Computed example of a mutant assay.
Amino acid sequence: MKKILNIRYAVVSIILLLAVWEIAFLLSDYSSALFPSPLMAFKALGEMVVSGQLWESILTSMRRFLIGYGLSVLAAVLLGLLLGCFGEIFKYINPLLQVLRPISPTAWMPFVVLLVGIGDLPAIVIIFIAAFFPVLLTTASAVGKIDPIYFRVSRNFGIRQPALLWKVILPAIFPSIANAMHVSLGSAWIFLVAGEMVGAQSGLGYQIIDARNNVRADYLLATILVIGLIGLFLDFVIGRVEKRINKAWGGE
């Protein structure tokens, strides 16, 4: 029943969006070449599907995203566990992390492009940076907040590393890590598109720039719609993975 209600809410919200879009198109004084209707955008979407352009862009962007995001989460969790276990070291490193964390990943883009050129690597690096700091800081902080009683009980039962990490530390901090992964996933997907607009010659971000250069607003809006739907799908997938892992570790 809950799933049916969620689907109904999603359908109604999409219908409302399309209705507002259509009304804005009818009332607007802009040319349809600059501000197309929903129907024109969906026709453009169909053209991209038939030509194969859309699938190629999606596969390229998803490959970059999975590599950058996967490496970022892995590195952030491992380093966060290490810093969390050595709290005194984390106290010295944390100020540096707090200085780097607010810097927008796109601010690094000119430097990255100068170092590695254009192609896949700049976009992957930007995704890595976008996802790294939220997961790292959350992991390190969560380890430091674990109730000491867990460790005392573990010692009483003879649990030592690496079993302590897998059976005690990770289950205890997993909800915090999962929340950080949710937040960082959205940021990483956003900055993937931004990275592809500058440092790539393919992908969904580049497709937006190409549509703009060719004055194809219908292609541009269709691509934006696809980007939003993929972001929603990725959020759904990570939510399902989170629930499965949490259940395996004794969560609800």
Rank of each mutant, 00 (worst) to 15 (best):
A130M: 05
F233L: 15
I227P: 00
A33E: 09
S154P: 11
I238Q: 09
L74K: 06
S32G: 08
L17V: 14
S61P: 09
A222R: 02
S32E: 12
V237N: 09
I4T: 12
M181H: 00
P38G: 10
A19T: 14
W108D: 08
A194W: 01
F35V: 08
I124R: 10
W21M: 06
L221Q: 04
Y30P: 04
Q98T: 06
F151G: 04
L164V: 04
I124E: 13
N156S: 14
I67T: 07
L225E: 08
V20E: 03
M48Q: 14
R63T: 15
A75S: 14
A217M: 09
L96V: 15
E47M: 14
I93G: 01
G117K: 06
R240V: 15
L229V: 15
M109L: 15
W108Y: 15
I4H: 04
G144L: 12
F151T: 02
P36K: 03
A142D: 02
R63M: 13
P38M: 12
V241R: 01
Y69P: 06
P105D: 10
A211G: 00
A200S: 10
A211P: 00
V116R: 03
V12M: 07
P105G: 09
L17A: 11
A131R: 07
S104T: 05
Y9D: 04
P162R: 09
I173F: 01
K43E: 14
K43T: 13
I177P: 00
L54I: 12
K243P: 04
L82Y: 13
D210Q: 12
Q98D: 11
Y150K: 00
G199T: 04
T139V: 11
L78H: 00
L5M: 07
P102K: 00
F157H: 11
A178S: 15
G119N: 05
M40P: 05
A10M: 13
F25P: 00
P162W: 08
P105W: 02
L204T: 02
A163S: 14
L121S: 09
D147H: 03
A10E: 10
I230V: 13
V135P: 00
G70I: 11
F236E: 10
I103K: 03
A19E: 05
V198L: 12
K91R: 13
N156F: 06
K243D: 12
G84F: 00
N156W: 02
F90W: 10
K243G: 06
Y9K: 08
A107G: 06
S202W: 06
L225R: 07
K145M: 11
V198Q: 04
S31G: 07
A75F: 09
V215H: 05
E88H: 12
T60E: 10
G158I: 11
A19F: 10
I245E: 02
M197R: 05
P171F: 10
G250S: 07
L79S: 11
I14A: 12
H182G: 12
R240K: 15
L114H: 06
P162S: 08
W21L: 07
K145L: 10
A180P: 00
L54K: 06
F25L: 04
I245K: 02
P105V: 09
A248S: 15
A131E: 08
I177M: 05
H182S: 06
D218I: 11
R8H: 09
V12E: 03
S51C: 09
S187V: 08
L16M: 10
F157M: 14
